[in-house]
Design a protein around this nucleic acid. Structure first.
Length: 539
DNA sequence: ATAGGGTTAG
C-alpha cells in the first residue's frame, strides 16, 4: 500500500516539478539553474522516483553552487541515496557536510525522511550519533515511532527526554498522547495528562482532540466527555474526536446527539465527522439512520463522499446482511473501489455465507493480505466446504503468506504485558495458564461449547480446541484475573478483531466472575458484563 | 541566497 502511495506521488511530483522532462533531462536543466528552490524541486522528483543517476549529478551541482550545507538539499540527497540503497554514500555525504558545519536542522530533516520510510532503527542511530539534539529532534523520534506503530519505543524515548535537558512542548504531548491512545494504556494516559498540566501546556484544539481520543481509546469515555465539555468548542476536530470515540464505544445515539449539537453551535461538520457518524450507525446496525446521514452529507452540507465514506456504507449494508445493497454501493460509486471496499464486502460474505459474491470480492482485490485469505478460508469453513478452505491454505503456503498472529496486551501497574497466541514466554506463564485452564473447565461445566468451525487448520477437533483456548485475548485476560483483585474491572487490547469463540467465552466469564471485562479490538470496544456484551453480538 | 515537528479517519 505504501508502495502504491509513493508511486502515485512520484508521477504527480515529477510531472509537476519537472514539466521540462520532455525537452531536457534533469541534470541538463540544472545546468541552467542556480536557484536552490528549483534545485530542491528537481531533486525531490529524483528522490521520489529513486533516480540515483540524476541525483548524483545534482549532488555535484549542489556543491559547485556552494549549497553544500543547505538543510533541505542535503537531507533530500541523503534520503535519495538511502532510497536507492546507497547507504555508504549517504553516510559519507553526512560526514562531509558535518565537517563543514554541523547543523541540527539537517539531522532533523534526515530523521524525518527516515521515519517516513519506516526506517526507525536507522533514525535512532542518527539520533544517538548526533552531538546536539533539540526539541524537534526528540519530537521527530517520538512522533516517528508512533506513526510507525512502535508505541512503547515512543514512550521510552519520551521518558528519556524527560531525563534530558530538553523540555517537551505541545508537539511532544500531541504525539505521546496518540501513542497512549493506540496502546489503550490508561495509567500511562493519566500520567501523561498530569505531566502536561504540571508543565502548564495550554490546550489547543489539536491537544484537546488528542486528549479526548486518548481517554476514549483507553476505555474512559466518561472522562473523554468531561474533557470535551470543558474544551473550547470552536474547532471541528474536537467534535470529530468525540463523535469517533462514541462510535468506537458503540454509542451511536450519543454520537448523533453530539452531531446535532454542532448545528446548534454553528460548527460545520467535515468529512471526518461523517466517517464517525456513519461508523457509529454501521457498528450498531442503524441502517436507516446511516442512509439518512449519508444522503445529508452531500444534500445539506455539500460534502462529497470520499472512498472512505463509501467504505463505511458497504460495511453498514454488509454487516446488516443487505449484500445486494452493499454491492450496489460499489457499483454506483464514482471512484474506483479499492481493496478496503472489497474487503468490507468480503467480510459480510463471510458472516452471511455468500461464497459467490465473496469470490467476486477477492477477484477484484489488487493485493491480498493475510487477513483476506483468512476471511476467505473462514467463509468456506463455515459452510463446511473443506476442500475450498484447504485450497486457500495451500495458496497461502505457496505464496509464503502466514496468518498474522493475534496479539493482546494488558496494562497493570503501569507496565504493559503482551501476549501472542499460544504464548509461553511471560515469566508468570505457569500461574496464568492455571487460571485459564480453571476457567475453561468451569465454562465447560456451564455447557460452553468451543466454536471450532472457523479454525484455519487441517487438524483434529481436539487440537482446534487447544488452539482456540490459547488465543491471545484469553491469555491476557487470564493474566489480568491472576494479578488483580476480584471484582475489579479489566481492560485488554487486541491487534485484530476478537473471534466469535473468545467473544462467547468472555461473556460467560464476565458472568461467572461477576466482573466487567473490556476488550478493545482493532475496530471497537466490547464491554462484557453479566454474561452479555455492549456490542449486542453485532460486530 | 538556507530550515525542521503535532489531532480526529472506512
Amino acid at each position: 500500500m505504501l508502495r502504491n502511495g509513493v508511486k502515485k506521488l512520484t508521477l504527480q511530483t515529477s510531472s509537476a516539478a519537472i514539466g521540462f522532462t520532455s525537452l531536457l533531462s534533469a541534470p541538463d536543466f540544472l545546468h541552467y539553474s542556480r536557484d536552490h528552490r528549483t534545485v530542491y524541486k528537481v531533486l525531490e522528483a529524483c528522490r521520489l522516483s529513486s533516480d540515483y543517476k540524476a541525483a548524483s549529478a545534482i549532488h555535484t551541482r549542489i556543491f559547485k553552487l556552494g549549497y553544500g550545507t543547505y538543510p533541505s538539499l542535503v537531507a533530500s540527497l541523503v534520503s535519495t541515496y538511502l532510497q536507492c540503497d546507497r547507504l555508504l554514500l549517504a553516510r559519507k555525504l553526512l560526514d562531509q557536510v558535518f565537517r563543514l558545519d554541523f547543523n541540527v536542522v539537517i539531522v532533523n530533516l534526515v530523521i524525518e525522511h527516515l521515519m517516513g520510510l519506516g526506517e526507525y532503527g536507522f533514525a535512532k542511530k542518527c539520533f544517538h550519533k548526533t552531538p546536539v539534539q533539540d526539541v524537534i529532534t526528540w519530537n521527530l523520534m517520538i512522533g516517528g515511532y508512533v506513526r510507525n506503530g512502535r508505541f512503547e519505543e515512543a514512550l521510552s524515548f519520551f521518558r528519556e527526554m524527560l531525563d534530558s535537558n530538553v523540555e517537551p512542548d505541545k508537539f511532544t504531548f500531541a504525539s505521546v498522547m496518540t501513542g497512549c491512545a493506540r496502546l489503550g494504556a490508561i495509567n500511562h494516559a493519566l500520567w501523561v495528562h498530569r505531566l502536561m498540566t504540571e508543565k502548564e501546556i495550554e490546550l489547543n484544539p489539536i491537544l484537546s482532540s488528542a486528549l479526548i481520543d486518548m481517554y476514549s481509546k483507553c476505555g474512559r469515555i466518561q472522562t473523554a466527555k468531561e474533557v470535551f465539555n470543558s474544551a473550547d468548542h470552536s474547532d471541528v476536530s474536537i467534535w470529530n474526536a468525540m463523535i469517533n470515540g462514541l462510535a468506537a464505544h458503540g454509542l451511536p445515539f450519543d454520537a448523533i446527539a453530539v452531531f446535532s449539537k454542532m448545528e446548534v453551535e454553528n460548527i460545520f461538520p467535515d468529512s471526518i465527522t461523517f466517517i464517525g457518524i456513519l461508523t457509529a450507525c454501521s457498528h450498531s446496525g442503524l441502517v436507516e439512520e446511516g442512509r439518512k446521514y449519508f444522503n445529508l452529507m452531500s444534500s445539506r452540507y455539500s460534502i462529497e463522499p470520499q472512498i472512505e465514506h463509501y467504505g463505511v456504507m458497504v460495511d453498514l449494508f454488509g454487516r446488516a446482511g443487505l449484500l445486494e445493497e452493499a454491492y450496489a454501493v460499489i457499483e454506483a460509486m464514482p471512484v474506483e473501489p479499492d481493496v478496503v471496499i472489497w474487503r468490507a464486502l468480503l467480510s459480510a460474505c463471510r458472516i452471511y455465507r455468500k461464497p459467490k459474491l465473496g469470490e467476486v470480492a477477492i477477484a477484484n482485490m489488487s493485493c491480498l493480505k493475510s487477513g483476506d485469505y483468512v476471511l476467505l478460508s473462514n467463509m468456506y469453513c463455515s459452510m463446511k466446504r473443506w476442500e475450498s478452505a484447504e485450497g486457500v491454505r495451500e495458496l497461502m503456503k505457496k505464496k509464503g503468506i502466514r496468518k498474522i498472529r493475534g496479539r493482546s496486551w494488558i496494562e497493570l501497574g503501569g507496565v504493559i504485558h503482551r501476549f501472542k497466541a499460544g504464548d509461553r514466554s511471560h515469566p508468570e506463564t505457569e500461574g496464568l495458564y492455571k487460571v485459564l485452564d480453571g476457567l475453561i473447565q468451569r465454562a465447560k461445566l456451564e455447557g460452553f461449547l468451543p466454536q471450532t468451525d472457523l479454525v484455519l487448520m487441517d487438524i483434529s477437533e481436539e487440537e482446534k480446541e487447544g488452539n482456540l483456548n490459547h488465543h491471545s485475548e484469553k491469555l491476557a485476560l487470564a493474566y489480568g484475573i491472576l494479578k488483580t483483585s476480584p471484582g475489579r474491572e479489566i481492560m485488554i487490547s487486541k491487534n485484530l478483531r476478537i473471534c466469535h469463540d473468545c467473544h462467547n467465552w468472555i461473556k460467560l466469564v464476565s458472568k461467572l466472575l461477576i466482573r466487567v471485562i473490556i476488550v478493545r479490538d482493532r475496530i471497537r470496544f466490547h464491554r462484557f458484563e453479566g454474561g452479555s456484551c455492549s456490542c449486542e453480538d453485532y460486530w
